Computed example of a mutant assay.
Amino acid sequence: MSPDEFDLAEPTLTSDDLLVLEDPHFGPETTAVVTGAASGIGQATAVALAANGLSVIGADIDDAGLQETIDIADDVDASGEVYSVPTDLTDDADVETMIDIAAEEGELRYVANIAGMQHIASLPKFPIEKYDLLLDIMLRAPFLTAKHAMAHVRDTDDGVGAIGNMSSVHGHYATQDKPAYITAKHGLKGLTRAIAAEGEGTLRGFSVSVGYVLTPLMVNQIEDTATERGISEREVVEDVMLGQARTKELMTPAEVANLFVFGFSRHSKHLNGGDLLWDGGYTTTYE
């Protein structure tokens, strides 16, 4: 390996990585929807929720990745089940079907809108079709998912549930060459607050904002950023990604998944419309 390269293999998920909590609604009778469940943060979140006993509807366009998620849940001896529901989040009928399946499987109480993608280009050079695709997946689909899910949560005996949205440090500030991603992540914070405003206190909305996480999406982003800026991959990680952070370490998908577990649990009843900002100091400190 050359000095300009990094070992960017995603860490293997084990049971020791996962936060497991006692909660009256964490059981097989409760369903949770996780989008982007075939890889990265979505995959880890689906496994973590299954480890907490929930019946998890794993939604993604990648069938093989969803099967891998099921296999990982088995490997960590999750007490809950992950169900593969192939879903195209740009297809309105698919999104509605995803929610219907979750409601048929049990009491739908939780949604984790995690699916995401990235495209690196300056705003003047950004292809509008890529902008539309990113916004469809990361903002329109979460809106539509919430639209269909909220009625089911309200129909439970106590109306308790939560919709968690995967935001980012890029929902707090902007950097170069990510205009669509930044627009979507800022929008998700607004959607989160709208859910909280209409949730009547028991159906909560919250977002999760983290820095750079070691996922397949991030590995591709490193390569694209290196090309766009004409620098090495090592410089992208050390100077662009971790340069502003106080915690000089990339997060793991499991660490992010645990935030969703906590956010859905009874311990977070006052997390409503707010953002779980675990960013290693990106947005709160400066030189």
Rank of each mutant, 00 (worst) to 15 (best):
R109G: 10
L54C: 03
I70P: 00
A51M: 05
A141N: 09
L139N: 13
N113E: 06
L108S: 14
R154Q: 06
E107H: 06
L139T: 13
E105H: 14
N113K: 03
D91P: 00
A151M: 01
D94A: 14
A48M: 12
R109Q: 04
R109H: 03
T87C: 15
E129S: 13
I137D: 08
S122M: 06
A146F: 00
A93G: 08
M138D: 08
H148K: 07
I128R: 13
D63S: 12
D158L: 07
A59V: 08
D77R: 13
D77E: 12
L139E: 13
V111K: 07
G53P: 10
E107K: 08
I72N: 04
V85W: 02
S84T: 10
A149D: 09
I101R: 15
D71G: 09
I137E: 05
I57C: 10
G116L: 06
I72F: 00
I70C: 12
A102P: 02
G159E: 09
I137M: 05
I114V: 15
Q118E: 12
A78F: 07
E96F: 05
H119M: 02
D77N: 11
L134H: 08
I114Q: 10
P124K: 12
L135T: 13
V153Y: 05
E107C: 03
G159V: 07
G42I: 00
A64D: 14
A59I: 03
K130E: 14
V76R: 10
A115Q: 12
V82G: 08
A73V: 08
V95Y: 04
I128V: 13
V76P: 06
D77L: 03
T156R: 11
R140W: 00
A93K: 09
A151S: 15
D75H: 11
P127S: 13
A162Q: 02
E105L: 12
T45C: 11
P124I: 10
P142H: 09
D62W: 00
L49Y: 05
A121M: 02
V85M: 10
I99M: 07
A141V: 02
E104V: 01
R154N: 07
I57Y: 01
V111Y: 03
A149S: 15
L123R: 03
A162D: 03
G58T: 13
V85D: 08
A50S: 10
P86G: 14
T145P: 00
A162N: 06
L89Q: 09
S122K: 11
L89G: 11
D136R: 09
G42Y: 05
D77W: 01
D88G: 12
A51D: 02
D60V: 03
P142E: 09
A146W: 00
A121V: 03
G161D: 10
G106K: 07
R154S: 09
S84D: 14
V111P: 01
P127A: 11
E104N: 10
